[in-house]
């Protein structure tokens, strides 16, 4: 099985190749994104600080990502709770329908929302229209994460609380919520990461205020702004690795709290 292990390592190199190049070009003292490298510099990172258009885009993206993550997680809690706790007619169909955005091409989501917003309601495009789209595509991911948190919840704990005289709301607040909290944190972080990085829906639904990916997309056409984008990319990669590691730690803690064996993976 040594062959298989070599293949696995080769595959990881393939997966990490583009990301590994990012810091090389971000610290490279040359305007062309190619080898050979020219020498070490911090100036592209310094350049990030002096680009106001980028700052606005980052703030827009952060606002959208935080709002979408909260909305998607709240909706996800409802779906995961219904899935784990109740039986009702057409359950599989209803939950399957809610998961559809996961497999729909994003351009279809973007176009269809644009049609409704611009052609039918003649609403102005804004950060809110992007939030609507991002909540929709983050929701299935939130549900996938929260489903495992709610599934692992032992129903007899809730029954015990009710038997001991707690109201349903207090049972949910004092028993259920603390047990699924790691799943909620993990869902918030994953939804935040997805929204922050999402381009095509934002491209269709953003008005005069671009999000960070829309800003990056516009800059990719100008060779002189590429090194700064590489510096930005390096920061984003570092940041998302931190966020994902935290999400993963919370997910594992949740599994440990529920007393389940870890089977790996977010999805």
């Amino acid at each position: 099985m040594r062959g298989l292990k070599l293949y696995a390592i080769g595959y990881l190199i393939f997966l990490y190749a583009p990301i590994a190049l990012l810091p090389l070009f971000a610290f490279n003292d040359g305007t062309v994104i190619a080898f050979p490298l020219q020498g070490f510099t911090w100036k592209w990172f310094a350049g990030l600080a002096t680009t106001p258009a980028l700052h606005d885009a980052v703030i827009n993206s952060l606002l959208i990502a935080v709002t979408s993550a909260i909305l998607a997680t709240l909706l996800g809690i409802c779906a995961a709770r219904a899935n784990a706790r109740y039986r009702f007619p057409f359950k599989t169909g209803i939950l399957g329908f809610i998961m559809v955005p996961l497999v729909l091409p994003e351009i279809i989501v973007g176009v269809s929302l644009l049609v409704v917003i611009a052609n039918i309601f003649s609403m102005r495009l804004s950060l809110w229209t992007v939030v609507l789209g991002h909540t929709l595509i983050c929701m299935p991911f939130a549900i996938a994460i929260l489903n495992s948190a709610f599934d692992n919840l032992d129903a007899s704990l809730e029954e015990a609380a009710v038997d001991l005289g707690e109201t349903p709301w207090n049972t949910f607040r004092l028993v259920t919520l603390p047990l699924v909290m790691p799943g909620i944190v993990s869902s918030l972080l994953i939804s935040f990461t997805i929204s922050l990085d999402e381009f095509i829906i934002a491209f269709f639904l953003t008005g005069a205020e671009p999000t960070m990916p829309v800003y990056i997309w516009a800059q990719l056409r100008f060779p002189q702004s590429l090194p700064i984008i590489m510096a930005l990319g390096t920061i984003l990669v570092a940041l998302s690795i931190v966020l994902l590691t935290v999400a993963e730690i919370f997910r594992r803690r949740g599994l440990a709290r529920a007393g389940v064996r870890d089977t790996g993976g977010f999805l």
Partner: peptide
Amino acid sequence: IFLITIPFWTSYLIR
């Protein structure tokens, strides 16, 4: 699985 999923979450456009 964590190692495999990490590159997927980071800046799609730049990748």
